[in-house]
Amino acid sequence: MAVGGASLTISDVWSGANNIAALAELRSAEIGAAYAHHFFLPGVLNASFASVFPLGGGSFALSAGSLGYHGYTDSHIGIGYGRSLSNVFDLGAQVNAIRLNIGPGYGSKTALVGSIGALFMPNEHLRLGVLVYNPTRTSLAAFGDERIPTRFSVGASRQGGDKVTLMAQLDKDLQYPINVSAGLEYQLLDQLLLRTGVSTKNRSFAFGVGLKRKAWALDLTQHWGQRLGFGAACSFGYRFSSKGRSK
């Protein structure tokens, strides 16, 4: 969130939602929970849960989330797996069961949506990510040929020294103009991270802090859109064994 959404190349417990392939870089079991109130708009609340379990040469992820309010709810449960195919290349796939519920009286629909992601690390400084969300153009309703939108994302990140990571990403959703986002993470102290990012979708800036202490992580984000105003998000993470995260 705090890097403007340019999260395609980040390996953490949220990789199930960002880029499933990046899971392959995780070596320990983790769980996380997040809550976001986008632009403090009533009803645009997002709660999510994620977990990762290393298995064999890769990692499994289980995730769930819900967006909306009683009049409109968009919730999902997902399972995914990502693994390394070589030292420089990771691949992952995820299936989400999406349930869309609109108001009293309209009922709800359920659909299965897949996504495929890849992560390429040509050298120790650079990471490139690709994600196709819903390549099958899953149908939601026969009426009007309503389908879950397909999204294609490419992103890059660069870590030159040991303090700064730069990230940039392009997302094209079939229904919306291309979104350009870029972000930066700065390790101010061992346990304190500062983040900032921009995104053209809502013309928004984001600023965040990340705190790390032993197995615990806490991230706080404030965002601001030119037309929609302020919003906020927070997330918790807990890591079970400390055999060293790769990130």
């Binding site: 030159g160 020294g161 040991d162 303090k163 700064v164 730069l166 930066l184 700065y186 900032t196």
Partner: peptide, 12 residues
């Protein structure tokens, strides 16, 4: 202005 590390700076 923040000079983050060698060669990297941001301004806000």
């Amino acid at each position: 202005l923040v000079s983050l590390e060698k060669g990297v700076g941001i301004s806000l």
